[in-house]
Amino acid sequence: MNYKKLIVDSGLRMLRGGYTVETWGNISARDPETNLVYLTPSGMDYTTIQEEDIVVLDLQGNRVEGHRKPSIELDLHLHVYRSRPEVQAVVHTHPIYSTVFSCCGEDIPMVIDEAAQVLGDVCRTAKYGLPGSQELAENCVEALGKTANACLLQSHGAVCVGQTMDEAFKVCKVLEVTAQIYQMIRAMGRDYKKISDEHIAAMRYFAKNVYGQK
């Protein structure tokens, strides 16, 4: 697989999907055969990034290829990969509805079936840490835990993970739709009806083992 092209294409996908604005957000992918991480460069317009701009590093953060300065959130991406061996893609977004809840320091519960199937667990808001800091990276990993596929960064945005880039983007989409629906429930002055743990487990199994073309 051409991982550099995957990162370039995914940057455009994030921008055009409305998951970020300008140069904010960052994306990485890990090659499971080499454990090398391919990461977006810092502060570059996603419409201008080329394959030669992608930075390649090992899991300790040593540069292997690329001449650009890597994303400021390099430590966050590496922390996620080191703590979650099954994860092969990380997408850090700045979506509107999800970020509203992050600014309140609130979690987003699994209020819809799609969230129960895709998000893995409640989407928790990580404690605040400055962008690019070791503290933020550690807080992100703590909020993700071992089962969640998404977390919020307080007053900052969201981090979504997957075993493939497509899976990570599915998490991005489902998280933002869930946040929008949850915000509308709250605006009505109502509370949501909790989906039982039993039904959540059944839907996770369905999504993983039954749904779609295998």
Rank of each mutant, 00 (worst) to 15 (best):
A201M: 09
T34E: 13
A143I: 07
C151T: 01
V141Q: 02
A116C: 13
I54G: 03
L36H: 12
G66L: 15
E167I: 05
G132E: 08
A207Q: 06
T47E: 15
E135W: 00
L78H: 08
K208M: 04
D166P: 00
A207R: 05
L15Q: 09
V80G: 02
L144N: 05
M188C: 11
E51S: 06
G162A: 10
V122E: 11
V159Q: 05
A158C: 11
A187F: 00
A137T: 02
Q183E: 12
A158W: 01
S28I: 13
K69Q: 14
A126G: 07
R186K: 13
M203N: 05
S83M: 13
E106M: 15
F169T: 10
M184T: 11
Y3K: 05
K4F: 05
M184L: 15
V171H: 08
N2V: 04
A115L: 10
T23D: 08
S98H: 06
K208A: 13
L130S: 09
Q88S: 11
Q88M: 14
V161M: 05
R190C: 06
S42I: 01
C172L: 04
Q88E: 14
R16L: 07
I185W: 04
P95D: 00
H92V: 02
S83L: 07
E52Q: 12
R204E: 10
G25C: 08
C103V: 11
E52W: 00
G18R: 01
D58K: 02
R82D: 14
L119N: 11
V118T: 15
T47W: 09
G17V: 02
K214V: 04
Q134A: 08
T99D: 07
H67L: 11
G17L: 02
A179V: 07
N209Y: 14
Q88P: 00
S83W: 06
